[in-house]
């Protein structure tokens, strides 16, 4: 490891205040990029499942009401 202590790694001789925010924003954006589609996929699947259950649950009465 190049730095002697955690403190030194955080400060980076005065450049830490630039390096660490750059990395944290990048991590945030990447996390958003990966997590959003996962959440959206779950949401879509849940919606479809609920739709299917509704269609199955009350086939005759609901079908007449909707159309």
């Amino acid at each position: 490891m190049y730095f002697d202590s955690l403190q030194a790694a955080l400060e980076m001789q005065g450049h830490g205040m630039f390096v660490w925010p750059a990395y944290s924003v990048t991590i945030a954006v990447i996390a958003l990029l990966v997590i959003t589609p996962l959440l959206r996929r779950r949401k879509v699947l849940r919606q479809l499942e609920a739709q299917a259950r509704r269609a199955q649950g009350a086939p005759a009465g609901r079908a007449g009401g909707e159309r």
Binding site: M1, Y2, A9, M12, H15, F18, V19
Partner: peptide, 17 residues
Amino acid sequence: GLLFTQPERIQGNSYRI
């Protein structure tokens, strides 16, 4: 890149970006 490389000669540690 952040912890195990030498700082750059001119830019120092900021080059790690």
